[in-house]
Lab assay of single mutants.
Amino acid sequence: MDLSALRVEEVQNVINAMQKILECPICLELIKEPVSTKCDHIFCKFCMLKLLNQKKGPSQCPLCKNDITKRSLQESTRFSQLVEELLKIICAFQLDTGLE
Rank of each mutant, 00 (worst) to 15 (best):
L6V: 10
P62T: 11
I15T: 02
H41R: 02
S80I: 12
E23A: 12
I68R: 02
I90F: 13
I15V: 11
E23P: 01
I21F: 02
P62A: 08
K65Q: 09
L63F: 10
D67Y: 12
C27R: 00
C91G: 10
V8I: 04
F93V: 04
Q60K: 12
E85D: 14
K50E: 15
K70E: 15
Q74K: 14
D2N: 08
I68T: 03
E84K: 11
C27G: 00
L30F: 06
K32T: 04
C27P: 01
I21L: 08
I21N: 12
G57E: 11
I89M: 15
L82F: 12
Q81R: 06
S36P: 04
R7C: 13
N53D: 04
P58L: 13
E84P: 03
K70Q: 07
F79L: 01
N16D: 06
E10D: 05
C24R: 00
E75Q: 05
L99S: 05
E29Q: 07
A92P: 01
V8G: 06
K45E: 09
K50Q: 05
D2Y: 11
K65N: 14
E75K: 03
K32R: 07
A17P: 03
N53I: 10
I15N: 00
F43Y: 06
C24G: 00
S72I: 11
G57R: 06
C91F: 07
T97R: 09
K38M: 14
E10G: 11
P25S: 12
C39Y: 02
R71T: 14
I21P: 06
D96H: 03
N16T: 04
K32M: 08
E33G: 10
T97S: 10
E29G: 11
V14P: 00
N66T: 12
L22F: 08
E85Q: 11
Q12E: 07
K70I: 14
I31T: 03
K55E: 15
L82P: 00
C64F: 00
L30S: 09
D96A: 01
E23D: 11
L73R: 04
K20Q: 15
P25R: 11
E23G: 14
I21M: 05
S80C: 13
N13D: 12
L30W: 02
R78T: 14
T97K: 04
V35D: 01
C24S: 00
R7G: 06
S72C: 13
P58A: 13
I68M: 08
P34H: 03
F79P: 03
L22V: 03
K88Q: 05
S4T: 06
Q12K: 06
F43C: 05
Q94L: 08
I90S: 15
K56E: 14
S4A: 15
C24Y: 00
E9A: 12
R71M: 14
F93C: 02
C39F: 01
E100P: 05
A92V: 04
I26V: 15
Q60H: 10
K38Q: 14
Q94P: 03
L52F: 09
M48K: 02
I89V: 10
K55N: 13
K45R: 08
A17S: 08
G57V: 09
I15L: 07
L99P: 09
D67P: 08
C91R: 15
L51R: 05
C91W: 10
E29A: 11
N16H: 10
Q60E: 12
I31M: 03
D67V: 04
F43V: 12
D96P: 01
E10Q: 11
C64G: 01
E9D: 05
R7L: 09
C64P: 01
I42T: 15
E33P: 02
Q60P: 10
D67A: 15
Q74H: 11
M48V: 04
I15M: 14
I89N: 07
I15F: 04
L87S: 09
L82V: 03
N13K: 10
C39P: 01
E29P: 00
N66D: 14
N53S: 11
D67G: 12
C61S: 02
C39G: 01
V14G: 09
I90N: 04
L3I: 15
I31F: 03
E9V: 04
L3F: 07
T69A: 13
P58R: 07
N16I: 04
L6P: 14
K65E: 07
C44Y: 00
C39S: 01
V35P: 02
L86P: 03
P62L: 11
P58S: 07
N13Y: 07
S80G: 14
T77P: 07
L95P: 00
S59L: 13
G98P: 06
N16K: 09
M48L: 05
V14A: 10
C61G: 00
H41L: 01
I26S: 09
C39W: 01
S80T: 11
I68K: 00
T37I: 13
C27F: 00
L6H: 07
N53P: 15
K56I: 10
S36T: 13
F46I: 08
K38T: 13
V8L: 10
K56Q: 05
E84A: 15
K20I: 08
S76R: 06
